[in-house]
Structure formats: C-alpha cells, structure tokens
Amino acid sequence: MPSIISVSHLSKTYGSGFQALKDINLEIEKGEIFALLGPNGAGKTTLISIICGINNLSAGRVTVDGHDIITDARAARTLIGLVPQELHTDAFETVWGTVSFSRGLFNKPKNPAYIEKVLRDLSLWEKKDSKIVTLSGGMKRRVMIAKALSHEPQVLFLDEPTAGVDVELRKGMWEVVRGLKASGVTIILTTHYIGEAEEMADRVGVINKGEIILVEDKADLMQKLGKKQLKLHLQSGLAAIPPALAAYNLELANGGQDLVYNYDTSADRTGITSLLGDLRNAGIRLADLETSQSSLEDIFVSLVRQP
C-alpha cells in the first residue's frame, strides 16, 4: 500500500535542550489503522502535534499525501482530522453549531446531511441542540471526534479517544472507526487500552524515550514475539523438577502444584507431545491443563522495559 504519511529523520529538541523525538522514520499506509503505543512521556503526542502542524519540528521532513507540512501546510492540514487528548470546545455553543463551525474553518461548503450523519454515527443526534457545557465527559469526547470529522479528512488522529468513555459508547465508537476505515480513511490511534489496539489495528508502532523501537504488522508481531504457555495442574505436588525433564525449561508454580511450560508460537513443533510422554514416564500424573497466549499488552510491556 502507498504511504499517506511519511516521516523522515524527524527530531524535536526544546529550548531547554530536552530531545523529545530522535530521528523518527515512519511510513503510515493509506487506509490502515495504525496503533502508536508508548508509555507516558514517550513522545506520542509530540509526534502527532508535529504532523498536524501544532508543534514545530527541529529537523527532518513530514509529508501528508505528498504535501510537505511546512512548505504546503494548508493542503496538508486540510487532509487531517485530530482528536486531541484534552477537551477543547466552546462550552456555550450547541453540538450542531460547534461541529458546523469546525467544517467552515476548512472552507468547506455547508453540508447539513453530512453533519447529521456524523452526529448520528456518534450517537449525538439527540443532543444536537444541547450546549456542550451540559454534556457528560464521554459525550464531549464524541463531540471532539465529530469536530475532527466535520471537514471529511483523509487521515484521522485519535489521541486517547476513549478516555472517560463508558464501555457501551466505546464499542459504538469503534464501529464508527471501522466504517471510516472501510471508506478509505487512514486512522492513527494512541491508547493506553492496549486491548483496543490489539483488536483494531492493522499495524503497530512502539515509541519509547523519543525513539521508534518497533513497527510491525500486528499479526506478524504477535507471531514473532508472542509466546504460548501451557500450565499443567498436577495430581501430586513436586518439590523440584526431575532431571529427566530439564531440557523443557519448566517452571514450578503454585507451591509445586503446577508446572509451567513456555513455547514459541512460531516454532515448527511445540514439544508438548514429547513433554507429556516424558511426564508419564517420570510418573507425574496430571489433574488438568490449560493454555494461554501472550497478548499485545504483554509484548508491549516487555518491549518498553528493555534497556
């Protein structure tokens, strides 16, 4: 797929000398959902702010669908919708009024039918005449999404979009995101709900301490770095693992009542069949067994903890 956002050797250094971003290189493909993950202070919001023209870069180049964000800023910005972390709205304006005004800021002609569709998709139609000050936090966040979509952008940045949004509304919001992707809109998502990224994203990028440490197709990442675990519940506990089982790198758990076996998801063979045979030969009887697979959150935590 062609890239709609291209970031080349991007760095950001503040006047204090703090380097927030260090030589970032990143390609966002047209029509994908890209999850940008990182701990607090990693540089996610700084990177998004630079691409959206809110913050200035110190070095490097960024283009949006071929438009340079500095030399062709207006064309680049018109293609982008941004839902920031912080809620910034005119408290005493109506929902309809603020979304319509946002469309006008991009010199788009009035289109009441489109604004109605956006509000209905975000479950805001019944509140269209309500002043924003009267809305709940979750509804205000949905208004921010509606404002970002008002000018029909080709790229949508969602910076922690579900913070403060209840579970039901969150599910509805992701249905809207899937619909946008189906229509060809590129979605860049940051979230601390990593389960959302695991469910929604096509590709995942991890940023830590101002550096991109990984960009990978989500399925490939789960296959490459994910691990499966087999937990064996024993009929009788063990004080130690028998030497005959040393090759399996087993761990005792639950006071010796369980054996834990980790195996590679990408390996041709798991070794489980031979393990079960050797357990039987060693006189170890099983009461039950269960398997689990590492999540994207497990992989993310292991990545950002590495020195």
Rank of each mutant, 00 (worst) to 15 (best):
L79H: 04
E86M: 02
D90C: 09
D65L: 02
K131L: 14
I115K: 07
H88M: 12
N40Q: 06
R74H: 09
G104T: 08
T134I: 05
K12P: 11
I28D: 03
T13Q: 11
L37Y: 09
K117Q: 15
I28M: 03
N55S: 11
P84A: 10
A76H: 06
S16T: 14
N55P: 02
G81Q: 10
A59P: 00
I80V: 04
G15L: 09
F92L: 03
I28A: 04
L21V: 00
S16Q: 07
G60H: 01
S123I: 05
D68Y: 02
F18Y: 11
G41V: 00
L79K: 12
V62C: 13
R103F: 06
T89W: 06
H9L: 03
G104A: 14
N55T: 12
G60N: 04
I70C: 06
D23W: 00
L122I: 11
V133E: 12
H88Q: 12
A59L: 09
L105W: 09
I28F: 05
R120D: 15
G41F: 01
N40K: 00
L26C: 05
V62N: 07
Q85M: 11
K110P: 02
N107L: 14
N25K: 08
G104Q: 15
T98W: 02
T78L: 12
K22Q: 08
F92M: 02
G81F: 14
I69N: 05
D72E: 13
G97R: 13
